[in-house]
Design a protein around this nucleic acid. Structure first.
Lengths: 344, 344
DNA sequence: CGGAGGAATGACAGCGCTGTCAATTCCTTC
DNA sequence: GAAGGAATTGACAGCGCTGTCATTCCTCCG
């Protein structure tokens, strides 16, 4: 007589039902090579019908691996973080890994402690911008032999990295503004310590260059990726003797600041001033008027980066050590030809 | 001669060095009673000198505990989620637990699978709104004997819960608008399936009642907590024969929609229309004009809920099964006396 | 001083899985 | 049709810890 107790199914139950050894079940769940497709199917069917999930603790204990990847970040932008988590989780689930989130302060000392403390609790790290650009952190990780994948616009010898074609996207946005008829286009840079800031500026410059428009340094302001700096940079730009007819801010919160400054100055957007952002955060859709911006494939970047990490951890061929994804221009009513309006 | 191999020390190493059995070491590390102080000290000294840390996986496997709590949510609001994660992590770290995030679709069938699949991977769940109001999910969790703490405005017999005094906050906001001189105050409800929506409506009603202001049903619109519904509800309200002089939306994205509708209609905010939101998401500060709203103590709610869960898991006295935290009114330029403006 | 009874400690069997290595099966190839 | 080698599968011993239960050590009292 079999026990009717409903305990969680183990690898033994699956093996028995599938008529194979537990080792074969283990192979299937670890995607090891050399399992006949028919056998694999039998095992998967058995597992499915029992609703079997491998016990992580047992797996960890036996393999001396944790099957957990840590996510290291200090980005305060909630929408960005949840998008990254979303993408990363997709890859994690596919590979049977779990994700341990680790928001941390960029303060180097605390950071070192945290990372070292986590050392045996995770198999590797996904390091997000802007933390991924901290030289000291990267070196620490590398010296301790901890597998990592970086999301960054800059390479760091020793770790694979995933980036977004920021320069190209900024070029496209500038091109679009030029095509609309703008010649005096203000630019608000992001935080100078973030790699992206410089790429976006470079794209802006490249597009202007191509059209033979002189780069007026007075049209470039140094912001910090936050609403407040967008606001004050815009105030500066708009109060200059020859104000721009369009302002391209390096991210959406700064563009929101530009909108506020414009409203406050009594300017109509887009008639008197076109405003463009970068990131396509939910903010952008909810602004008034809705913001023209650049949609970054954040979810895809995170998924890809996590997949690269998984492959690395499993010793599979990793492919290229650098992947670059394309961003996409999103046109909304905050931009128009100078003097025109997008509304009826 | 000691082995020079630098592997991580195990409980056996400590036991040998301390001259006791591994079980005694285990007792010391688990703070079990009935260990002589002298023995305890010997063990701790040995552990210290070896720099021993218990292996989590082994502990988990043997004890059938995971020292991980899962966070179950389907809220798409990134700022809310990161705030919750932040608060929850604070409590987790304090108790030596890890946090496993689990965004999921509210689709009941998938959900059941996910939760059951996670069953032995976590010791308990923190269930967030609005998932925490799904009757079927709560029952599933309860039937499977999984320890949970809910963040919700509604009780569910069997689980402790943490809520925010939404009704009171909505009352305060309405009171504030009345004090400014508004009599026709529009209200946009949230998603009818979310408990909060009804509490906020109740607070609005209570305040009007107190002031003897008749409740005009035409002033209450049914929204869905998103920008779009806020926009269309506001259009309805503003195009009525007797439009309101203030609109109180049940969350910030809807208030953003109200702002857009007002701008589009050519109304000046706050001179022609005061607008108030709820939640104090970053959106609110970045809107034009900045939104008067209600700050919810999200981080604190999450930390408290997680602490309650930890205590429950550790069999410590839990205290009350219901905690309620206060929200706080945040005044910004989007509200003013009718006909007045907040700007110079 | 002997014995009762609680406090302190230990022996040992797993927890559910993976690594190792041996056994078996399946193809080729001539 | 059999040898030879590669592909596939299985048996079994732990991984480091905790639960159970047996054993030993005290302490206190008649």
């Amino acid at each position: 007589m079999r026990s009717p107790i409903s305990r969680r199914p183990t690898i033994n139950d699956v093996a028995r039902l599938a008529g194979v050894s537990i080792k074969t079940v283990s192979r299937v769940f670890n995607r090891e090579p050399n399992v006949r497709p028919a056998t694999r199917d039998k095992v998967l069917a058995a597992a499915e019908s029992l609703n079997y999930r491998p016990n992580l603790s047992a797996r960890q204990l036996a393999s001396n691996l944790t099957f957990v990847v840590g996510m290291l970040y200090d980005n305060p932008n909630g929408d960005y973080i949840t998008a990254v988590q979303d993408g990363s989780l997709q890859a994690c689930r596919e590979y049977g890994y779990n994700l341990l989130i680790n928001p941390c302060r960029a303060d180097p000392d605390t950071l070192v402690d945290e990372v070292i403390g986590l050392q045996r609790q995770v198999d590797g790290f996904l390091v997000l911008q802007p933390l991924s650009d901290l030289q000291r952190l990267n070196e620490l990780l590398l010296d301790n032999g901890i597998p990592c994948v970086r999301v960054s616009q800059r390479p760091f010898e020793g770790f694979p990295w995933v980036s977004v074609a920021d320069e190209e996207a900024a070029d496209q946005m500038t091109e679009y503004l030029v095509q609309l008829g703008h010649r005096r286009i203000g630019f608000i840079m992001g935080h100078p310590d973030h790699g992206q800031s410089h790429d976006r500026l470079a794209g802006y410059r490249r597009a202007l260059d191509r059209h033979g428009i002189d780069l007026d340094d007075d049209l470039v302001e140094q912001g910090h990726f936050d609403y407040e700096s967008g606001y004050s940079c815009a105030r500066n730009l708009l109060s200059s003797p020859a104000p721009p007819t369009a302002i391209f801010a390096s991210n959406d919160p700064m563009a929101m600041g530009v909108l506020s400054a414009a409203h406050e100055t009594g300017l109509d957007v887009p008639r008197d001033l076109s405003v463009a952002g970068f990131d396509d955060s939910p903010l952008a859709r909810h602004a008034w008027p809705p913001l023209t911006t650049v949609r970054q494939p954040i979810v895809e970047v995170a998924r890809l980066a996590t997949e690269v990490l998984m492959k690395r951890l499993r010793g599979e061929p990793e492919g290229a050590s650098h992947h670059c994804l394309q961003a996409e221009l999103v046109r909304r009513p905050s931009t128009a030809a100078p003097g025109e309006t997008t509304f009826g």
